[in-house]
Write a protein that binds this DNA or RNA. Sequence first.
DNA 1: AACTTCACG
DNA 2: ACGTACGTGAAGTTT
Length: 843
Amino acid sequence: MNRKKTVLIDGTGMLEEVYYALPDNCVKGIRNVVVRIIEEKQTDYIAAAFGNFNKDGIAAEDLKKKQELLKEALADLKIPVFEEEGARSLDLICSLAKNCEKEEKDVSVLTGNETFLMAVNEHVTVLIPGLGEEGVKLINWSADRVKAEFGLEPEQLKEVFSLERGAGIGRKTACRLLIQYGSLKTLYGRKEELESDQVRKALTEYEQQVNKEADSLCMKTDYNLRLDESKTIAESEIAEIMDMDFEPAGFPEEGEEISSSGWIKKEVTDLSDAEAVFARCATGASVGLQLAGTDKKISALALCFSKEECWCLIPQGDLTSEYLKEKTEEIIRQAEEITVLDLKSQLPFLNLNGEKTVFDASIAAYLIDPLKSSYEYNDLANDYLSLSLPSKTELLGKRTITQALEENRSQAVNCICSMAYVSFLCGNILRDELKKTDMEQLFYDIEMPLVYSLFSMEETGIRVERDRLKEYGDRLKIRIKETELKIYEQTGETFNINSPKQLGEILFEKLKLPGGKKTKTGFSTAADVLEKLAPDFPVIELILDYRQLTKLNSTYADGLAAYIGSDERIHGTFNQTITATGRISSTEPNLQNIPIRMELGREIRKVFVPQEGCVFVDADYSQIELRVLAHMSKDARLIGAYQQAEDIHAITASEVFHVPLLEVTALQRRNAKAVNFGIVYGISSFGLSEGLSITRKEASEYIEKYFETYPGVKAFLDKLVAEAKETGYALSMFGRRRPVPELKSSNFMQRSFGERVAMNSPIQGTAADIIKIAMIRVDSALKRQGLKSRIVLQVHDELLIEARLEELDQVKKLLVEEMKSAARLAVPLEVDANVGESWFDAK
DNA sequence: AACTTCACG
DNA sequence: ACGTACGTGAAGTTT
């Protein structure tokens, strides 16, 4: 007789088990299992039951949510769902099973809960996900299988579980004891025979708990639950369910990576599978995307369309890197929203012009909180998803994703999928945050377009004459050696002059020079300290020379040489998510601190040269920060001073010290200049006195006079501090935020720092905004006009262009005009521009 | 890894 | 009494 077959899904038991492996993806995972059972016609009837969770704690809340989702998903599959107030799913399922048996149906219980194994009999089997040879698969536990595995009848397992849970006895021991003694009762009656002290002790000590477990393992099978006969799964329904499947057909189900961090990451190396993924993509409104590779060649593409779907496409055979490139560009054109991390790093692999907005989640997160040290996927997962993911370094060590693909493929896949996944999930959260914080314009009109300008600048690079730099370094090395010997001669000792510790001991202990401790670790030998001693001790000058020479040699001569590529150019990195104020920074190498103030250092700029047929055009803003201050503070007198143009420091001196402009002395001008700097830095008498080597009292008087002269500035700075205290952040003209948590500090030092930051950030930040706008406009004007000249450097208030000779006039005009008109302020934005055969000449 | 020093705006 | 000017990055030394 052919008995009908029923599958009973223990929704709760499945969730509890699967949640461990796939916390974010358990519903989808379980649904897939159920769909497969239906598709493969493994059953005539199907039903599900839900009950209370055994677990509590943090996971319980989430599990409850997942349970509701799973109920919905099963209901969508037209599966009847049973639940009963306060009932355990174990009891509900067993009640159902009992009734099915009466109706002469065979039952399979799909669960993650091993407790069900005790309910196995001739007509009831249990399906539990377990590890097979090829990843996760369902193991069908029949009565024979239970006997083979445990050596016991299924019903005896109740006592095994009681011993395990109640007395903490291991499964193997528990089975052995029950095989030997037959039942718990007999075991307890004869426990004195036991050889193991440990087991005997556990049995005695935990007898109560064992009995309690045994009681709770008794099934309650009298719930009156019945399957509706009409709910037989019809052929038509199977077809319908298969259509509902939102997975592209034909994907590898076996051998897929099951991650502990929560989503299914699938590796695709086959062209037809890749086509299916891209087809899936076409319907996706929102996509998280990440590329990896080297030399513009894609080595992996990760795509995330939903919380449950993350694909990693790796070129192989027919599935070529070029194909991935074209498809990626297509997706970017078609998708409603594309989110990536670090867009600039993605541009080498794609032909994009910025026409379509690609949302850079890292930059969005930077705008929202610019004080973070990094904005990698694990940082964003922590901050916006409350999800702790292993960092790139933890997964790959020092390797890149491309390198790791060869040596440690699964970790590389994990890493790049994590990036796409986090992009996908954070995208909308960050879009909302930008809206809430009023930074959408800043983001979409300044930061995103800037990505392309910075990329272009990096790609262009700047030419550096290798041989000439080498000669410069050699000259330095000779002078270093000479100076070094003179210092040894004068101090009567050979020591490491580069060691502040050794130098301090020689100067202040051995030679007993005046001066004293200044740093935590010992004597300060900083230049400003030594300079005060220089007139009296000739060795000091030698040491300062030595310092300057070694600095130039190691950081610039040798340092820069290491970055010159085979194209004779240096392609540095310009970072957009580093500074607290909105400036960009430059690394590997730092091209924003090439010497200029000292004559010898300035020489280095002679090795920065344009390529053949080009010249440099350099343009910088004249006192952009003070002009921003004049604008933002609306101080009439300061604005007036700038409208007269000329020498702002001299005008300031004239007004502050009440002398005619033409009678301002060099000293007065110098003092006024220092005050101007101080204002921008967030003035304090301590700082100014230090900067001018005057007393604090004198410094206070200068500041007081300054504020008397420019009362609008005083009011403005006070307002900045007050507002930052109120809101917790400082604001630039374009809405850029800089949090100032120090303002809340009870520490005077910290709080004072916070006040200076509140005064400086809006000024520095606005200046940064303005040059960013200028950069974008200059860059796009060059490209729009079909010119070959390119921006090669940005140094905060300066842009350097490598200009084709034939484009020189046009470029120079364009550069100056775009910079001047980048923002409309109450005072003119003045720009100084120069042309030269080297960076040295163009300044 | 922290500290010191020093190059730039 | 407190004890720093604001914003960066790199190199070298010490721990």
